[in-house]
Design a binder for these strands. Structure first.
Length: 172
DNA sequence: AGTGCGATTGACT
DNA sequence: GTCAATCGCACTA
């Protein structure tokens, strides 16, 4: 959930990728640096960084303090504040608003200012609990990485139209 | 201080 | 399908 001056923007997380301890693909793999320090915060804190100079990526730290690991939020299903998201993205098509990590960050106006924020406390950006039926969870390789590319650590709501990339490979 | 490179996206052939 | 944009930062020296 995101609180902006124009109003509240919310979405349901429908796609994530895990970057676990000891994972060569993870930004924390080579130890703590200025950029990745938020990955080492208590689970539930935001790690935001800029990829390719163009797109912000939102992650949630996932371990105890001092241990670097996190979950990349790759896609949302837009719920509230869709007109605000359209304005932030400069497009009209709802399906493209938050389908992809850079797109959802733009729709929610997420940038480096939110790096390190505790997402378990209500604020300008936080994680709420929805009231959704548990769906089928699909699983696949992670997208766009070069190191350690074969682990099945991408998870998505099977068949959800707001999932970016492959939506078919399902396990469970 | 200089260099190289993305956990992507949008525009274009 | 291809490809460039664009910048914070890790890395080297």
């Amino acid at each position: 959930m995101r609180e902006l001056s124009e109003g509240v923007v919310t979405g349901r997380i429908v796609e994530t990728e895990a970057y676990v301890v000891g994972d060569a693909a993870g930004h924390a793999y080579r130890g703590m640096t200025r950029r990745n320090r938020s990955l080492f915060l208590e689970r539930g804190h935001a790690y935001v960084y800029l990829a390719y100079g163009t797109s912000y990526m939102l992650n949630v730290s996932s371990e105890t303090p001092g241990i670097g690991a996190g979950v990349l939020i790759r896609a949302l299903e837009p719920l509230e504040g869709i007109p605000i998201m359209k304005r932030n993205r400069g497009i009209e098509r709802v399906r493209d608003l938050t389908r992809g990590p850079g797109r959802l960050a733009a729709a929610l106006r997420i940038d480096l200012n939110l790096d390190g924020l505790d997402l378990c406390q209500k604020g300008t950006l936080w994680l709420g609990h929805g009231n959704h039926e548990p769906g089928r969870i699909g699983r696949s390789k992670r997208i766009g990485i070069t190191r350690n590319p074969d682990r099945l650590l991408r998870f998505f709501l099977y068949g959800n139209p707001f999932v970016s990339g492959p939506r078919a490979l399902s396990i469970r």
